[in-house]
C-alpha cells in the first residue's frame, strides 16, 4: 500500500524520474504487443467483414468435431477446448515463473519455465494434428453435378449447405463452402501458431539463461518478465481466435 500512496502523490512529469516507472525494454515490449494486437485485430476484423458479407457460413460445431483416436465420433469443440486449456495452463505456469523470478528463486524459475515450454509444444502439436485432420479429412461434395471428395484447404472446402442428394453409401453430400473460410482459418490460426512457436523459442532461450545463472548474476529476472508478457499475449490472442472461429 505504501507504493500506491507514493504513486498518487508523485509528480510524474516534473522531471528526474521515469514517468512510466518501468524499464525501457518492458515499455517497448508493451508497445510491440499493442501493435501486434492491431495486426491480429485487422486480420480478425477482415474475417468478420467477409463472414458478414456471405449468405451462408459453416457452423464451427460441424467443422471442428474430431478428436485424436476417437474415429468418426461427433465431438464438437472437444479438441479445441483441450487446446484452450493447455494454453491457459501454460500461461499460469509462466506467471508463476515470473513470480519466482521476483523472489530471486532460480529453481522455481527453471521448474515453471520447463512446464511453460512443455505447454507451448503440446499446443503446437495439437494444432498440427488439427490442421492435418482438416486438410486430409475428405467429405463428399457435389461439384458441377459430380460427387467429389475434398478436404479443407485455402482454395476449397466441403462445408457448404447440404446438397439434395445422398451418396450411394448413405453419407451426406454437401456443397463447396465459402472459399474464404479455409484461407482465413489457416491464415489466422497459422499466424497465431507462428507466435506460439516463436514464444516457445524465446522461452527456451530464457530457460537456458536461467539455468546458466545469467539472471542471478544480473541481480534480477526482468527478462523472464518480458518473455512472460509476450507469452501471455499469445494466450490473449487465442481467446479471440477461439471466440471468432470456434464459438460464434
Amino acid at each position: 500500500m505504501a507504493t500506491a500512496q507514493a504513486h498518487t502523490e508523485t509528480k510524474w512529469w516534473s522531471g528526474g524520474k521515469s514517468p512510466f516507472n518501468v524499464e525501457y525494454g518492458k515499455l517497448m515490449m508493451w508497445y510491440f504487443l499493442m501493435s501486434d494486437a492491431f495486426t491480429f485485430g485487422a486480420f480478425l476484423i477482415s474475417y468478420g467483414t467477409i463472414r458478414f458479407s456471405q449468405n451462408y457460413w459453416p457452423d464451427p460445431n460441424e467443422v471442428f468435431n474430431a478428436f485424436p483416436l476417437a474415429g468418426h465420433a461427433n465431438l464438437p469443440l472437444a479438441f479445441v477446448s483441450l487446446m484452450t486449456f493447455i494454453l491457459i495452463v501454460s500461461s499460469v505456469t509462466m506467471v508463476l515463473a515470473v513470480h519466482a523470478g521476483h523472489n530471486m528463486d532460480k529453481k522455481g524459475v527453471i521448474k515453471w519455465m520447463i512446464w511453460t515450454v512443455i505447454g507451448g509444444i503440446a499446443f503446437l502439436a495439437c494444432q498440427a494434428w488439427e490442421w492435418t485432420h482438416l486438410i486430409t479429412g475428405d467429405h463428399a461434395v457435389m461439384i458441377n453435378g459430380q460427387i467429389e471428395n475434398i478436404g479443407t484447404t485455402v482454395t476449397m472446402n466441403p462445408w457448404g449447405p447440404a446438397a439434395n442428394v445422398a451418396a450411394h453409401d448413405g453419407h451426406h453430400v454437401g456443397t463447396p463452402g465459402p472459399v474464404a473460410f479455409g484461407g482465413y482459418f489457416f491464415g489466422i490460426t497459422g499466424f497465431h501458431g507462428f507466435h506460439v512457436a516463436s514464444g516457445v523459442g524465446i522461452n527456451i532461450v530464457m530457460l537456458i539463461m536461467a539455468i546458466n545463472g545469467t539472471f542471478e548474476r544480473k541481480g534480477h529476472y526482468w527478462m523472464i518478465e518480458k518473455a512472460g508478457l509476450y507469452w501471455h499475449f499469445v494466450d490473449l490472442v487465442w481467446v479471440f481466435v477461439f471466440l471468432c472461429f470456434y464459438l460464434i
Partner: peptide, 18 residues
C-alpha cells in the same frame, strides 16, 4: 482478456500513465 492483461500481465499494477 481483462483478467489476462490485468493480472497475468500485471498491467493493473503499473502506473496510470502507462
Amino acid at each position: 482478456a481483462f483478467y489476462i492483461v490485468g493480472v497475468f500481465m500485471h498491467l493493473g499494477e503499473e502506473v496510470k500513465n502507462l
